[in-house]
Design a protein around this nucleic acid. Sequence first.
DNA 1: CGGTATCCGCAACGATACTG
DNA 2: CAGTATCGTTGCGGATACCG
Lengths: 128, 128
Amino acid sequence: MEVSTWKSGMKMDVNAPMCPSRGVLEHVTSRWGVLILIALRERSYRFSELRRHVGGVSEKMLAQTLQTLERDGIVHREAQPVIPPRVDYSLTELGEEAADQVLALARWTEKRTEAVLKNREKHDEARA
Amino acid sequence: MEVSTWKSGMKMDVNAPMCPSRGVLEHVTSRWGVLILIALRERSYRFSELRRHVGGVSEKMLAQTLQTLERDGIVHREAQPVIPPRVDYSLTELGEEAADQVLALARWTEKRTEAVLKNREKHDEARA
DNA sequence: CGGTATCCGCAACGATACTG
DNA sequence: CAGTATCGTTGCGGATACCG
């Protein structure tokens, strides 16, 4: 598995990585990207609905993350020309594949969170 | 899948989330966490070796990320009392599980990066 | 070699106000 | 309702220096 193409002496611009897959990976593993993918895997959501379902995300970050994922062809945006406006977000086929992977990771995390918490306690008291 | 326990009107502190699994998820999906897990899944690495293998990471961020993952019980740190110092990093059992999930996601990303790039082009020219 | 400590700039982020 | 615009802050992350 190729992780990097960086060589010492090269100028490394992380936001325009020579390894473009790293950029894609960062989009789907981004803080809100992960939660959006998991939510949309169940069903499509409207903007505000999604904002409520994913707790703690600002309007700005939700819009921004959705735009990024739409540009990547992972999220599909369907705006209906009605008043008041109605916009539905859903996963593309590509997005469903991504969401499956992300969900597997999230499920593992949930299953193992208790173990991680125990480890933190042990580690902290060992240090004290 | 429970994504959030946030309710409107609650004070939401994202760094001490009511849903602790979100914190764990953010550690393993963090920018360098992902790449470290993938590297360590192959074999154990020494500090500088790991730094070279994961291109573009600063000493500070590498140390910081490793400490976080060690505290979570995902990475094992073994320091040998020799001169010059030698420290090896490897995955715990918990870490191997995590790395498997992350690797699956990374593999998917690599397989689909081309498709994403095409989508970006189409999306950008549609906007122009 | 394998870190820690310190400084600091800048992009990311959140809150708020506003618009179609 | 579904965003954009603006602004203020924060904390991520790089650079550098130093230590055991």
